[in-house]
Computed example of a mutant assay.
Amino acid sequence: MNKRITSKQLAKLAGVSSATISRAFSSDARISAATRNRILSIAQEHDYQPNALARSLNSQRSRLVALVVNSIENPAEAEQLQYLVHRLQEKELLPIILCCAGYDDRARLMRMASAYQVDHVVVFSDMVSFDDAIQIFRSARPIIVSNEPLADNNASLVRFDGARAAEEVVDKAVAAGKSHFAYLTGRTSSWIDKQRKAWFADALGKHGLAFVAEGHGDYGYDSGFKEAVVLLRRSKVDAVVCGNDVMAIGVRDAATRVLGKRVPEDIAIIGQDGIAMASWECHDLTTMALDGTTFIDHVVRLIERDQADEVQPETVVLHLKVRWGSTC
C-alpha cells in the first residue's frame, strides 16, 4: 500500500513548486491542463489529498458559507437552497446549513458555526435576531434576506416587493365579484408574513375593502386544511389569501372535499412563494411567485463581491410576479 505524502514531497516528485501544487487543486487557478493532469496523476498514485484546513490557515480563507434557514422541510426554502448549494459547490465554496426551527438557543447555533471562521453567511431565517447575526458573524459580512428594517449598515440586504403583484391579484378577484377576503397567516412573529399581508391589505384598501377574517396556521398543509374548515364555516368568505403555497393547497382541499365549495366560483384561493408543487395540474394554484434563479444569482453575486473585498453593503429589491392558476 502506498504511503501518503505531503504537498512538499508531491512538488518534488512532480518537479514543480508548492504554489503550483496548490493551483493544481484549485479549479479557477491559472495552470496548464498538461501540468494539472500530471500532478493529479502523481497525487493519485501516492494517495495524496490536499489538507483544506492547512490551506485555509495559509490563505486565511475557510471557503465555508453559513446558510441560516428556518427549516429545510419548507418546500420554498428547500428549492432555493438546492440551487444555492449547487452554485456554491461550483465555486468550491462549502455550505454549512443551520436550521433554526425547533432550536431554542439560535444565537448559540450561530456561534457554533462562526467558530469555524466562515467566510460568508446568508441569513434566510426570520426566527433569529439580525442584530445578533451581524454581531456574531461580524467578520463574514452577512447577507440578510428579509423585509425587516435593518439598523446595522454593515450587512447587505435582499428584500422582496410584492405590492404590485398583490394589487394585480386583488383587482382581478374583485372584478370577478369577490368582496369578502380572509388572510391565513403562517407565523405571527414573521416579518415576511406581516409584509405579505400588508401588500394585500393595501390593495384591498384601494377598493374600499379590508380583510373580514383571519386564520393562524404554521405554514404546513394540515394547518391550512384545518384552519380553512373553521374559517369558512364561521365567516362569509369568498377569497382566502394564504401566507404560503402549502397552506393554500390545504385550504383548497378543505374547501372542495369537506365543504363542497367550488374553486374559484365560490371561493378564490391565493398562495405565496411560487413553489413547483403549486403549478402541478392537481393544484394549479394562483400564487405570488419569486424568480428563484434570479434571487440566488444575486446572493451568489453578493458573496463574490465580498470575496473581492468590496466592503460597501448593497440593498437588492426583487419584485414578485403573479403566476396565474385556476384558483383565482
Rank of each mutant, 00 (worst) to 15 (best):
R4T: 12
Q9I: 08
K12L: 13
K12W: 05
V16H: 05
S17I: 14
T20V: 13
I21D: 04
S27F: 11
D28W: 13
D28Y: 14
I31H: 05
S32M: 07
A33G: 09
A34P: 03
Q49L: 14
A52Q: 14
S59N: 13
R63W: 09
V65C: 13
V68P: 00
N70F: 13
E90C: 08
K91G: 04
L93Q: 03
C100R: 01
D105F: 02
R108I: 05
R108M: 10
L109D: 00
R111D: 03
Q117C: 14
H120A: 15
V121H: 01
F124T: 09
V128M: 03
I134C: 10
I136G: 00
R138T: 14
R138A: 15
I143H: 00
I144E: 03
I144H: 01
N147W: 06
P149D: 09
L157C: 05
A165C: 11
A165G: 08
E167F: 12
E168F: 08
D171A: 14
A175M: 08
A175T: 11
A182K: 02
L184K: 03
G186D: 04
R187N: 13
S189F: 12
S190E: 11
A198E: 14
F200Q: 02
A201R: 02
F211E: 04
G217F: 07
G220E: 09
G220Q: 08
Y221V: 06
Y221H: 08
D222L: 12
S223T: 12
E227C: 15
L231Y: 01
R234N: 11
V237D: 05
D238K: 04
D238T: 06
D238E: 06
N244A: 08
D245H: 02
V251A: 07
G260Q: 06
V263I: 10
I267R: 00
I269Y: 02
G271F: 03
G274F: 02
E281W: 03
L285A: 10
T287M: 01
D291F: 09
I296N: 10
V299Q: 09
R305G: 00
Q307V: 11
L320Q: 09
C328M: 11
